[in-house]
Structures are given as structure tokens and as C-alpha cells.
Write a protein that binds this DNA or RNA. Structure first.
Lengths: 231, 231
DNA sequence: CCAAAAGTGTTGGGACTACACCCATGA
DNA sequence: TCATGGGTGTAGTCCCAACACTTTTGG
């Protein structure tokens, strides 16, 4: 058989599930854009678009996020690739989904070129979504819950300096359980990956909490030494 | 902007990393095929090929496995999608990699249509591989090691009936550590997902071990009840 | 009877759970 | 002074790691 890439080719897109935590409302938010094109014109959908020939998948995800939402340099990992027949009503489309985490307070959204609008929605109050994006969001949430327990990805959802109560609330919101305050703090202390700073909370009307930061370097040292992060 | 899927399209392939355990040699085996086409004619590579327009990704993976190796109805999960520029020397190719587990003793290989040959290689003695397949195998091995600890996927590498020593040896081979026999057995007993059968080992020249089987149903019950499999 | 692997209990230490009160601050 | 969340210790239980010998079978 000769070497020819002779088969008909599907189109390939990337889609990004961007999560953030809303500490006021105590819920999880997903970033959606209102589609400005057919199909599903006017519906809400995940930010994303076609992969260009001169960029990698991750580059495409980063570019689309920037173009459609203005978000930049956020945590991003590949989630899953969806390739069922009929996902797109008109053509064969394969979508590589990405999973992104962002600190809600630290970023501002820009609507732009091919998205008429971008907005945060509570995960449990999503509008009707284009394509199979509801399923993708579900899978992403499963990944978030699963990975949160054994990898320090929660810190991506917090500002660089945070209180222990914020961290605990984050875990409680995402996992849907509550933790004992003293036990939670003891466990973190034992993990030894948080660094206490000399900063404290500002503008709170009660005793200000000490602020901590996550020590990536120490975490990697411990992981390589065979210690497991687990919460 | 009008609705046209106007972009140039990459080709999409699937590649399968099939693992098995060799209990005689006490090592991990990977299934490779010798390429019968350019590029990398004559090199060893992962089984796989182009995704057709009328099949899903998983269907493509199952079809290619059957065509190239004869393997059928084995454990399969999606691993990762590789889309770097230049992975393939001649064209833009995006590969959806799958991760497969099989019981070495229970299956026979068939070479066929577009693979000149198929063979098992020890993971630590791989030949030069086509494309970036060495990297894909590495990623698959990481997935195997990681997932083995908290999901009962090891049973996919064993025959339906197995001894506790086989199971322990499997964990030791894959994770590269050794476990205390009594503690290992106590832990399994506590997990309560193994069913003792009335069968025993045959044709061994020492005391024959009792054979057990994995109880999928009970495992799912426990998982839904919030219990974690962990070893 | 020898080789080879199967099978089996106990103990000490560390981790986890459950639980309640005082402290600091701003309004 | 009050409301709000910040911060802290102990005791009991359970889990885990460490450790060695006897049993069964085939050759």
C-alpha cells in the first residue's frame, strides 16, 4: 500500500471548560460565550474554535481563550477528545476539550471577535448549550472533583495569597462536603506545602486572617521524594 | 461571520498502547507492529491508523486493533491527544491515543492486512519507534502506574481466575515496589471486592493456591456508596 | 525429604475523627 | 458590647507497617 493520507478528513476544534469559584455565592462558575454564528446561533457554548494548521492543540486552546474571553496565562490541561458521529449537526467534527482554572477575582473578561458575549454561569444553573457541551462540562467537573483530592490544583482557583478558610471553603464548594476546621488545618500543616506570609486580610469587619501562599517548589520536591498530596 | 468549516483540515489517527504482564519474565510488555508503509517503513510502531468518517474515535481504535493485531474485546480507554506540529514528517497529523490492557495468556496475535508483523516487547527494551510513539508509551505507562493505585484496572491484566500471589506480583511489577504478603492480603480482604472460588491452581509443583475473581458488581456498589478502592 | 510457594496473627505507632471555647477586630 | 469569623488541643479509635513460621504439594 502506498503512503497517502487519502482519507476524508474531519475538522478538529478545541473547546475550553473554564472554572472559577465564586466565594460570595459559594458556587462554581463556568465561562460561556454566546455564539455569533450558525449552528446554534445565539446559544451559549464553550469558548473554542478550529485548530489551525500551524499551531498545536494547546496553542489553539490558548489562542481561542484569549480571542473569545480575554483570558491569558491560566491553568490549562487537556481533558478529553470527543469524536462521536453527529456531535455537530452539519459536519464531522472532532473536539479536543481543555480544562481550565482561573481565579475569578483576578481577571476581567473581554468579549470580542467571534463571540457576541462572554459570561460566567453557575454550574448548577446552566442555560441550554450548543452541541454536546453540557456533557463536556460534566466530564470536566468530574475531573475537577477527582483531581482536587490528590493534586494541588485548587490553588489555581485562588489568588496568590489566601486564607486557610478560603482554601477550606474552596474544597467544600467543589466536593460538596464539609470539613472540620481544626482537622483541615492540621492536615495542611502536615503536607508542608503552604508558606505563611506576613500579610493579613484587608477590609474585613472581623479579625483578619493570616494569608498563605502555595509553595510550588517545595511541593515538587516532596512529590519527587514519594510523598503524596492528598486531602 | 458565516458558518463554513473552511479551515484546512489535519488528518486524525488513533494509536493504541496495549500493555500486558509477562509473569514468567516479570516485566511489562507492549504490543508493537512493524510498519508496512512509509513513513518509517520497517520500523516498529503502535497499532493504529486513520479515523474514518463514519466511525467514532473509539470505534476506530477497536477496528484498528482487530485489523492489525487480532485483539478483540479488551479494556480500552482514551489516553491523550497528540497534536504537535511536526509529529509526522510529511503532514499535519493529530493522534488520539488509547490505552489498552490485556491478559497475555488469554489472547493470540494475528498479523494481517497493513501490519507486516505484530509482537510483544518488554517495556524496558523497546526498539526504535516511529513518530513520537516512545513518548506516547511513556505517558501510557504513567497513566497505568497512577490509575492502578485507585482504580481496579489491574484485573484487566489477569485471567478471570487468579491467585492472590499473582495479583500481588502484578502490582509489584508495574509499580516497581514490593509489598508485604500478609498486609497485601489483609488490605484486599478489607476492600471486599474479591470473590473466592472453589478452583485452585493446576500444574504447579508446589501447594496450589486458591483462585479468586474480581466482583465488578460489588465494586460498583461500594464505589457508589462512597468507598474508595486504593492499594 | 526437599524445594517451592501458600497461608496465617500480633503488636506498636501514627493518622484520623470528633468535639468546644477563647481571641481579635470593626462597627 | 456585639457580631463575625480566626484560631487552637486532646482523647479515642482505627489503620498501617513490621515481622517469621507452619502447611501443602510435587518431584
Amino acid at each position: 500500500m502506498s503512503y497517502t493520507y487519502k482519507y476524508a478528513r474531519p475538522s478538529v476544534t478545541v473547546d475550553c471548560v473554564v472554572f472559577a469559584i465564586d466565594f460570595e455565592e459559594e458556587n462554581i462558575k463556568v465561562l460561556l460565550i454566546k455564539r455569533g454564528e450558525e449552528p446554534f446561533f445565539g446559544n451559549w457554548a464553550l469558548p473554542g474554535g478550529f485548530v489551525h494548521m500551524e499551531e498545536s492543540l494547546e496553542e489553539a486552546a490558548i489562542r481561542e481563550l484569549k480571542e473569545e474571553t480575554g483570558l491569558d496565562s491560566i491553568y490549562l490541561e487537556q481533558l478529553f477528545t470527543y469524536g462521536e458521529i453527529g456531535r455537530d449537526p452539519r459536519d464531522r467534527i472532532i473536539s479536543v476539550a481543555y480544562f481550565a482554572l482561573v481565579n475569578l477575582a483576578g481577571k476581567v473578561l473581554n468579549a470580542s471577535t467571534d463571540a457576541a458575549d462572554a459570561a460566567w454561569f453557575a454550574l448548577d444553573e446552566l442555560p441550554a448549550l450548543a452541541f454536546d457541551h453540557d456533557r463536556i462540562i460534566n466530564d470536566a467537573y468530574d475531573r475537577l472533583k477527582g483531581k482536587l483530592r490528590y493534586k494541588p490544583i485548587g490553588f489555581e482557583l485562588l489568588p496568590p495569597l489566601f486564607s486557610l478558610s478560603d482554601l477550606q471553603k474552596l474544597y467544600e464548594i467543589i466536593l460538596g462536603v464539609s470539613f472540620d476546621k481544626r482537622n483541615f488545618r492540621k492536615k495542611l500543616q502536615k503536607l508542608d506545602v503552604l508558606e505563611e506570609t506576613d500579610q493579613i486580610q484587608k477590609d474585613v469587619k472581623h479579625r483578619a486572617a493570616k494569608l498563605y501562599q502555595f509553595d510550588h517548589v517545595r511541593y515538587l520536591e516532596r512529590e519527587n521524594a514519594g510523598f503524596y498530596f492528598e486531602l
